[in-house]
Write a protein that binds this DNA or RNA. Structure first.
Lengths: 350, 350
DNA sequence: TTGAAAGCGCTAACAA
DNA sequence: TTGTTAGCGCTTTCAA
């Protein structure tokens, strides 16, 4: 049972615990090379590993960051979790996983909980337009990286925002459709309550205007309360329902822009259920470029988010703030999205 | 900055820290109801939350479990992570996320690391047939739940194993195909190195025998070293390559049993790329029933693992062992898989 | 029924 | 260059 302590290492090396501690904390320059050598040998021989709880109790810091996502069951967040954890591992950090299920209350509780546990850095994937609920903790020193959410006016001054340029991405997607000749377009999304949904919608509208199409003629689905009825994992269900609704109209769209890939896959499903064929009858564009996009039948045209880079940036910015301890200015990183054209889009029929 | 300490609560309530501690640790029966009342009031008023690091330093325990999966980027593991975290949250536990990327060395390092951090319970999703590498820690008291891996002869005596009955699942899948009239079947998997791959293959063979088909005529793909070339996230790539290989044969299979859903989706992709149609030309069955199985085109016939229940069991068994502290006998839980028939399977052409 | 006291393993002044 | 010392916040005997 007995774990090796710093005291035992010190004894074995014939020095005091503080010298060992100095070595451990990167102050090796203030000791004789031979002392250093002896300590290192002792550490190796005994298989010593510092007790993190003790260290945290003493310093108030730890080597853990929190990740709050709507649900890791969703492949998009799963990919973020994977890459973030990878980046963290490389620097000796751990990742505490939290699924908010898009429940604002749960989101706040998690952050409180993390803070109480001594976690000072959190990557927060919140769809909430306001981050007011976490302000008290940010003022106390919590370092926050908002992921997949661009900076907003009321945000904490120290906030780091990391996101793809949603408007540009959506515009790329939509322009691709108008260039193929589509004129009756639809935009499918849950309630336009979150920041990035609004931005993507904005890009959609901008592309229509640029193509000389009156945005007022564009369709929005699901209409009414349907938009609120679905959580994150159920994005595909939302797409499916929206497709059914759109295809039942007098003049159904010939092309659909989906808020994300899971939603797009649901739309494709709905199109097939309506007896039509994706691409041939109705074009579909997604957003995210999850792994499945390339696997689907037909393969999905979509807007890629450079997830690996984004996750790596999220971690390194967080770490820098955690370790520098200086006053940290907020900043925002906007990654450039890329249109990936695959099989789910084609010119309109007639 | 200053967090509220137990000392402050004690002062506010006019008692000593030990009494507060007693209340906190479920020993409220040994104090006057009014004392208890006063303490609770003080806790509420001050917004006190016990410092976990201090508690852990003192007791050597914490409220965190580790989850080691090949990759949360894979929707199957993503789903496990989600449900496990949910179950943990309900009991005040946290989940530390670790992606092994199917690297045995990384797997072992993670477990060591977790142990050094005071994590005494881990849900391990290892494909390794032997758990020898973690034995030293298990002997020191690490509680281990092996997930998606049935109990093996050499396993630690205290191990809990949770898995679906792979052989039965695979047999259900295969029998479904033989009953449809298929006679030229193939089994697609990475190297049959892991426990559950072997079991699934066993079920496949058993079903063939029962149907009066000589297992020797069944095909295995990818052949040779191809089986080793892919990790976990790339299961779909493996399927895609295997499909290409199988379809190039003189007598290609009319039905394929895939080792899991991601692999099955890759196979479907490969079939389409070969100019054939899933179901009509070649039937495909998966395993797992990930969310995408129902979304795919065609929807995928597959074997469902009751993930939510399995994850909940994993957590509650782990917790029981963590908190009972008594000597814990090993046990294994085998969940019953369920065949979900969808569109990707049909009778053979002629 | 309550409190005093010791100490978990570590770090960081401060002294030597 | 190295060691001494004093806690970080909590739990848990043991004594009152």
């Amino acid at each position: 049972m007995g774990e090796v302590t710093i005291q035992q290492v010190a004894t074995a090396a014939g020095v005091s615990p503080s010298t060992v501690s100095n070595l451990l904390n990167g102050r090796s320059h203030r000791m004789l090379p031979e002392t250093r050598q002896r300590i290192e040998t002792a550490i190796d021989k005994l298989g010593y590993r510092p007790n993190r709880a003790a260290r945290q109790l003493r310093t108030g810091r730890n080597q853990t960051i929190g990740l709050v996502v709507p649900s890791v069951g969703n492949p998009f967040w799963g990919a973020l979790a994977r890459h973030l954890e990878s980046a963290a591992l490389a620097e000796g950090y751990h990742v505490l996983l939290c699924n908010s299920e898009r429940d604002p209350r749960r989101e706040r509780d998690y952050i409180d909980e993390l803070w109480a546990d001594g976690v000072h850095g959190v990557v927060l994937c919140s769809s909430l337009p306001s981050l007011e609920h976490v302000m008290p903790l940010v003022e106390r020193g919590l370092q926050l990286v908002a992921f997949d959410r661009t900076a907003q006016a009321g945000d904490p001054a120290s906030l780091v925002s990391i996101s793809v340029d949603n408007a540009v991405g959506s515009e790329l997607a939509t322009r691709h459709l108008t260039e193929l000749g589509h004129e009756r377009l639809a935009f499918v999304s849950g309630a336009l309550a979150s920041v990035n949904r609004k931005e993507r919608h904005r890009g959609f509208v901008a592309a229509l205007e640029r193509a000389g199409i009156d945005p007022a003629t564009a369709m929005l689905a699901p209409s009414g309360s349907g938009a609120d009825a679905f959580g994150d994992v159920e994005a595909s269900e939302l797409g499916r329902a929206a497709a059914a609704e759109l295809l039942a109209r007098d003049e159904p769209p010939t092309a659909i822009v989906a808020i994300n890939d899971m939603c797009a896959l649901g739309i494709c499903r709905g199109i097939r259920e309506g007896g039509l064929e994706v691409a041939k009858d109705v074009s579909v564009v997604g957003f995210d470029d999850i792994v499945l996009a390339e696997l689907y039948a037909p393969t999905l045209t979509t807007v890629r988010q450079p997830m690996r880079d984004m996750a790596a940036s999220a971690f390194s910015l967080l770490r820098a703030r955690l370790e520098d301890s200086g006053p940290s200015q907020g900043q925002s990183l906007l990654f450039r999205p890329e249109l990936i054209v695959r099989e789910s889009t084609a010119p309109p029929l007639s």
